[in-house]
């Protein structure tokens, strides 16, 4: 795996699979009860079952605990974002990832949602926060790109920046946040990376991001963040 930027204290590419993330940002079309119903819901559920049998992971949770893969899940984001549902799957390969999005769309997903799919291979392995196996009912998805300032920086400046960001990432873990590693999106999108988290509360996420501001994380990046309560996907796939 080619890394866009190097490993740090917190993040390692050792032992990572060749899995490929399938992130989705889905906005309800609205007013589709005449073209989306029980038949389409069942068809989407059947495709999700097939994908699971083909080796897909269907939630952030399952990236930490494979036994959790019996329940596809996503973030309910409509309360504060321009998209209604955001989520993260992992496919066995890049090709499987893209083909899977087409299968889901054709099963009826495209009738319910206008969706942006973001696809790319895993770079860093998941890292568990403090707190052990507690409930983490909130999800957080961070997209970012390296900006012109990062692009113009020297290798020494970037190394110093990575060390400072690691302070913030260690702070995230100390807030009981689980970080599902890092994925690389830049080959097929304008965003360069995805970071997907599980957290105990929106307050924990807000405190964590304040920690990233304190170390000047955003001097070298432009980011977009999505936060939402994690819910079973079948509850969110309804007209």
């Amino acid at each position: 795996m080619t890394l866009l930027t190097g490993e740090t204290d917190v993040f390692s590419s050792a032992g990572t699979s060749k899995r490929c993330v399938v992130m989705f940002l889905a906005k309800r079309e609205g007013g589709v009860s005449d073209i989306f119903g029980a038949k389409e819901q069942a068809a989407i559920a059947a495709v999700l079952d097939e994908l699971k049998k083909e080796g897909w992971l269907l939630s952030i949770r399952s990236m930490f605990d494979p036994a959790a893969n019996n329940q596809a899940a996503a973030l309910d984001t409509g309360f504060t974002h321009s998209v209604d549902v955001a989520g993260v799957f992992e496919a066995p390969t890049i090709s499987a990832a893209i083909e899977g999005t087409v299968r889901l769309e054709r099963a009826g997903w495209a009738r319910l949602f206008a969706t942006e799919w973001l696809i790319g291979p895993r770079e860093f392995a998941p890292v568990k926060g403090t707190g052990g196996e507690i409930e983490r009912p909130w999800g957080f998805l961070a997209l970012w790109e390296w900006n012109d300032a990062w692009s113009a920086a020297t290798p020494e400046q970037r190394a110093e920046y990575d060390l400072e960001c690691d302070i913030a990432f260690k702070g995230d873990l100390a807030l009981d946040i689980n970080i599902a590693g890092r994925h690389r999106l830049d080959w097929a999108h304008g965003w360069h990376h995805l970071g997907a988290w599980e957290a105990v509360s929106p307050e924990a996420i807000d405190q964590a991001i304040t920690g990233h501001e304190d170390v000047a994380d955003f001097i070298f990046t432009t980011s977009r963040h999505f936060m939402g309560r994690v819910r079973p996907l079948h509850e969110l796939i309804a007209a």
Partner: peptide, 9 residues
């Protein structure tokens, strides 16, 4: 170079 990419099958 700043960039944005798309892929399609």
């Amino acid at each position: 170079f700043a960039f944005s990419n798309n892929v399609g099958i």
